[in-house]
Simulated scan of single mutants.
Amino acid sequence: MSLARRIVAEGLGTLLLLAVVVGSGVMGARLAGGNDAIALLGNTLSTGAGLVVLIHMFGPISGAHFNPAVTLATVLRRELGPVDAFGYIAAQIIGAVLGVWLAHAMFALPMLQISAHTRGGWAQGLAELVATFGLLGTILAVSKHRREFTAVAVGLYITSAYWFTASTSFANPAVTLARGLTDTFAGIAPASIPMFIAGQLGGALAALAVFGWLLAEDHA
């Protein structure tokens, strides 16, 4: 598959992912009548289901990373070259921003926004480390032993992690940056973004180390 097609697939897939995340957050908040638990449940189910479909759609083209942390992992595992990775990450970030704007347009919201939803503190960073560690572990382990189940496993993991992590499992630097541009249910204040991304990158590197060892073949 040509690099151009793979980059477009990453951008389009990430765009649709953010439209799902932000759009379902807006819809959930509107219908929940102020009940954040119900709003989060709607956001969770839509995101998990959407991920499964998007990975099946774009996986055969680009691998369906939609996530700079996943792309970084493939580079460190020597499965993707630096030039290709740069194109992937640029497409992911651009696609994520466009996905936020698309969600705003669908719900007749102001296009340009900055989130005021503060998600601060070391506990949030730890939660993102755990969320991203689990996501990368899911991808690495399941793709090795049950590759055909990877899309479902990722969707199920994110569905669970929305609820068991204090941060509601962003687990994705491109998603985090883009969600700083929406003052809706899914938003994150720009001041909170560095802690989230630090946790995400730390979780990705930890997962590479731990699962690289766990999944290594034993040699006599």
Rank of each mutant, 00 (worst) to 15 (best):
A189N: 01
F211P: 05
M111V: 12
V83H: 00
M27E: 13
T165I: 08
G59F: 02
W163V: 03
L112K: 06
A151W: 05
H145T: 15
L129Y: 11
G99P: 06
R5T: 11
A220C: 08
I61M: 02
A29V: 03
V83C: 00
A9K: 09
H56W: 14
S62L: 07
G125K: 03
A191Q: 14
P194H: 03
V22K: 05
A37G: 09
A116R: 11
V97I: 15
A161R: 06
F133H: 10
V70A: 09
I158Q: 05
I38K: 02
A216L: 07
A151E: 14
G25V: 06
G81D: 14
H219D: 15
P173I: 09
L45S: 06
V21Q: 00
F58I: 08
V8M: 13
V154L: 14
A37D: 11
V130C: 10
A37W: 08
A174F: 07
D84E: 15
F196A: 13
A69L: 02
I158Y: 01
A96Q: 02
M111L: 15
A90V: 15
R179H: 06
L140K: 01
G42S: 02
L54Y: 06
L17Q: 00
I114L: 14
M57F: 13
G95M: 10
F170Y: 15
H219M: 13
D183S: 05
L54N: 10
L112W: 13
L136Y: 01
A105P: 00
I193E: 08
H104Y: 07
L126D: 12
L208D: 12
I55K: 06
L135C: 04
R146K: 15
L54G: 08
A209L: 13
G203V: 08
T118M: 06
A19T: 14
R30E: 14
Q113A: 10
A96K: 02
A96S: 11
A4Y: 14
L177W: 01
T150H: 10
F185A: 01
T44W: 00
A141L: 09
W163A: 02
A207H: 04
A123I: 15
D36Y: 02
G33S: 11
T47S: 05
S24Q: 05
T47H: 03
M111R: 07
G50L: 04
L98K: 02
P194G: 06
M1W: 04
G125W: 03
Q92N: 10
A141S: 15
F196E: 15
F211M: 12
V130Q: 13
F107L: 04
A151R: 09
N35H: 09
V83E: 11
G120D: 15
L214P: 03
G134Y: 08
P110Y: 03
H65V: 05
I61H: 06
A131Q: 15
I158F: 01
G34D: 11
Y162G: 02
L129T: 15
A4R: 14
W213D: 12
G34L: 05
M1Q: 11
S169W: 07
A153E: 12
I55E: 12
G212N: 11
L80F: 10
D183V: 07
L76G: 02
P68R: 01
R30K: 14
I61W: 04
G33A: 10
L156P: 00
L51N: 05
T184M: 04
H145C: 04
V53F: 12
A64R: 05
I55L: 09
L80H: 09
M111W: 08
V52E: 15
F66G: 05
L54F: 00
